[in-house]
Amino acid sequence: MGTNRFCEELTALLPRLRRFARGLTHDAADADDLCQQTIERALKARQQWQEGTRLDAWVYRIMRNQWIDEVRARTRRSQTFVHEDEGMNVGTTGDSDAENLVELGNIGRALARLPEEQREAVVLVLVEGFAYKEAAEIIGVPQGTLTSRLGRGREALLRALGEAA
């Protein structure tokens, strides 16, 4: 039910979804893949979306979860090569990523180096413009956790940009 409306709204979200994907993945090819997987999942699950709730937050959550799955899969694949304490950050440490980082510019590099959980918080609030409460719901954590990740991510970015943090 409501498929036409659902599809129209989803289509209208595509530019923002592509931006969020780039923010999460900091890689154009990864972002394209992520967008495609997200749309597939969203279309498949469209009966589960509840009318009257925000479609954007619902799709962002799908995208975010899809990316976390991907990061975990990559972590497992490369686990023998990385140091334990790099943990969730491992998706950003492959060779091809290191090459890509050169093209990103200061802010892009700094963002790419953030741990996954800080990066998603920073991108949801500062770029995608979600309120703390909404961002916390998308990620599925309490608001206090969101603000603490956001704070740490922000300070790391400010330091990387040479701002006193």
Binding site: C7, T11, L14, R18, R22, Q36, L126, L157
Partner: peptide, 27 residues
């Protein structure tokens, strides 16, 4: 300045034309 820098970095992605493949999947 940080917010502006981040937006300046990522907003252009939202300005790009959306690949036909994505819209086609939805259609």
């Amino acid at each position: 300045r940080l917010r502006e820098a981040l937006q300046g970095h990522l907003d252009p992605v939202a300005e790009e034309p959306v690949p036909d493949a994505l819209a086609a999947m939805i259609a």
